[in-house]
């Protein structure tokens, strides 16, 4: 029966680790914005060079 006690200890430790991770993620602001991040990674990155002329105009100002 000692094994039961051991398993309880292990399961509680794992549960506590998960609780800790939850609290950490909450504190670090991961739930602040649940809308933007999943969209952000879907946006295609286009090279900025496409509008060189525009940038030059800006830089000369």
């Amino acid at each position: 029966m000692i094994i039961v006690g051991f398993l309880i200890g292990v399961s509680l430790t794992i549960a506590l680790v998960f609780l800790g991770i939850f609290i950490w993620s909450m504190r670090s602001g991961q739930y602040d914005d649940t809308y933007a991040p999943p969209l952000r990674m879907l946006f295609d990155d286009k090279p900025v060079e496409e509008n060189k002329a525009e940038n030059k105009a800006d830089n000369t100002r």
């Binding site: 602040d32 914005d33 649940t34 809308y35 933007a36 969209l39 952000r40 946006f43 900025v48 509008n51 525009e54 940038n55 800006d58 830089n59």
Partner: peptide, 27 residues
Amino acid sequence: CASCLWLLENLYRINRNIFRTEVNFPR
């Protein structure tokens, strides 16, 4: 909406002097 997010985070393409934009959507 998603378009707002995309446009505002691509502001650097309109003006080079803007390095980076970060949007906090719900706020």
